Amino acid sequence: MNLLRKLLFPFAILYGTIISIRNFLFDAGVLKSYSFDLPVIVVGNLSVGGTGKTPQIEYLIRLLSDKYKIATLSRGYKRQSAGFVLAQAGTNAKILGDEPFQFFQKFPSIQVAVDADRKNGIEQLLSLPEKPEVILLDDAFQHRKVKAGLYILLTSYGDLYSDDFMLPTGNLRESRSGAKRADVIIVTKCPFNLSLDEQKKINKTLKVTPNQELYFTFIAYEEFIYGEKRKINVNEIQVAAKVLVAGIAKPEPFFAYLQDTNDVCLSFPDHHNFTDKDILEIKNVAQNNIIITTEKDYVRLKGSLPGEQLFYLPIQSSFVSGSENFDKTILDYVGKSTTNNKLY
């Protein structure tokens, strides 16, 4: 923790107090939460950025989209639009935001929408001729105006919410006690061989309650990088000269997975909107070498860098163990909700 963050400690106490009062008012029913007659699943976190919400949402899409009509609803961070927007032909990352646009490109069978007001966003989705049967709310754990049916809380291995503090001294959006609202807690970005002893230790550290399920996931990288017209096996480019570009919260694992001795790594802020100056810098550094970026950055860089040079490396969320139990929890919740409730 740097000196400035320590000096801002009184503001963290004030901010924490305000958020706690807000949560109390929602819990007491003074501030109203709205429920909807279809399965609504929230994926979120207590801290700002970097817990792996996007691959977790994609995991749920893959699990559910063959059986149900799925819609994702995000805020659309840093998008150049306002209000409710439903992705359609001609929509781009500037209109939707990078992560929703990534969903739109990868999963053409689902509906992708953005709205900072999640209640309004759900109402707009349910007013469409093709109504969704399941809505996945991305990064909405603190959006108490909507009462979801299932809450999935993510926290990063090595950066657990139990070891953090409120903004601006720490990175928490709300106090650790907010974790009690979660039905499922997932520790993300773990070592793939995380031991049972360490899993038990983390369970105790997080103070997981008997009515909560705890899982551990790791980031699995695909075997290929993908460009506009071709794909290349990662093994083939491991020792090739290349430039690695990332505008994500914690790019170190991405760099470490691909980097060779003479490679150049260019790091930008999370959700960075690449300027003409940035593009020129990347071109000058890369020359004729390939450029590899994250999937999230690719949707913003595509068209600005030469298509024959630009590639991205997809990732997926994989469970250390217990994926069958997790899938069952999700499928049971969605199945019972769609059977017992009359959809709008």
Rank of each mutant, 00 (worst) to 15 (best):
G97R: 11
N284F: 03
E133S: 03
T91K: 06
F326V: 07
Q142G: 05
F36D: 11
T91C: 09
Q124G: 01
L3N: 07
I18R: 03
N45I: 10
T54G: 04
S177Q: 13
S127R: 14
V239K: 04
T169L: 15
G76A: 10
N171M: 12
K336L: 14
K302A: 09
A113F: 13
G227A: 10
L194S: 04
L313Q: 11
N288S: 15
T17W: 02
T275E: 06
F104W: 11
G52D: 00
L25E: 12
P314Y: 05
Y226C: 11
S81R: 05
L343C: 03
F319G: 11
I219P: 04
P210F: 02
I330A: 10
V243Q: 10
I219N: 05
Q56C: 08
R62C: 04
L266M: 14
T294N: 08
Q105T: 11
G76W: 00
A220R: 10
N340E: 12
E130I: 09
S156W: 00
D297M: 03
S47V: 07
G322D: 10
R144N: 11
R118G: 14
D117C: 11
K32W: 04
N325W: 01
I152K: 07
N203L: 15
V134D: 12
K231L: 03
Y215H: 14
I202D: 06
L96H: 01
K242L: 07
H271I: 12
P55T: 08
L64P: 02
P253Y: 04
R22G: 04
K242E: 07
K69F: 03
A256K: 09
F9Y: 12
E133F: 01
D139I: 08
L128G: 06
K207E: 14
E308P: 04
K189V: 00
F36M: 05
I61G: 12
K250N: 14
S47E: 03
S20V: 07
Q105M: 15
Y257P: 06
K131H: 01
G29C: 08
Y333C: 14
I248M: 06
